[in-house]
Simulated scan of single mutants.
Amino acid sequence: MRLLTITAAMLVAGMATAETVAPADVQFDEDGAVAVSLTGQPGDAARGRDVFATKSKGNCVSCHAVAQLADVPFHGEVGPELSWTGDNRSAEELRGIVADAKMTFEGSMMPSFYKTKGYIRPGDAYTGKAPKTDELPPLLSAQDIEDVVAFLLTLQES
């Protein structure tokens, strides 16, 4: 019993000091799921709701309708309705989809929210404003991803 208690304490302590997984280090399985938390910290569903609904953050509601967000105007119809996502997807699947939906759904129009390389963008000849670097910051932080996943898991039929 004592060994079990010590082992559990070590696991909890290790999780509390876990490093954030960098975008380039995210490990997707063959179906696009991400088994490991990007932060080692639990997501905050209330904060995830804010990221999901706020235009200057995730702005997910611009493409997805969610019945539980009746107070947020202008739900989109480009992506699937997500009102029962928590009943149909695991945290691992949702983490992969939010981080980079193209790993799950090839050809998806959904932005890659946790990616820094491999973007196709207009060159200097088109806009004159193309970034001079191959790497861009991710659209959402690792904790933002975990928070959105926590929110999506709350979206259930009951």
Rank of each mutant, 00 (worst) to 15 (best):
L4A: 11
A142K: 04
A45M: 07
V66S: 09
S62A: 12
D25A: 15
R89D: 11
A16K: 04
K57G: 01
E93C: 03
T154H: 10
E135K: 11
G76W: 04
V148I: 14
A8I: 06
A9P: 14
T7L: 15
G96P: 07
Q68G: 09
F28R: 01
L139H: 07
A67Q: 15
M110Y: 11
L155D: 10
A45P: 12
E30S: 00
D87I: 05
T17S: 13
E30F: 01
E19P: 08
V148G: 10
A35P: 09
P137D: 01
V78H: 06
P42C: 02
I6N: 06
K102L: 03
Q27G: 03
D71W: 09
A18D: 00
G86D: 10
D71I: 12
A33N: 13
L69F: 12
T127R: 11
K102H: 12
P73R: 12
A99I: 10
G58F: 02
S141V: 05
G128M: 15
K102Q: 15
V34G: 07
L155I: 13
D134C: 01
K132E: 15
A150N: 12
T154Q: 13
V98G: 06
W84G: 00
Q143N: 09
G96T: 08
L38D: 03
C60M: 08
K55W: 05
L82C: 12
S141K: 02
S56I: 03
E93L: 02
K57V: 03
T5N: 11
Y114H: 02
G32D: 06
A67K: 15
P73W: 15
K117D: 15
R121S: 12
S37M: 08
E81H: 06
L94M: 14
A46I: 01
A24G: 07
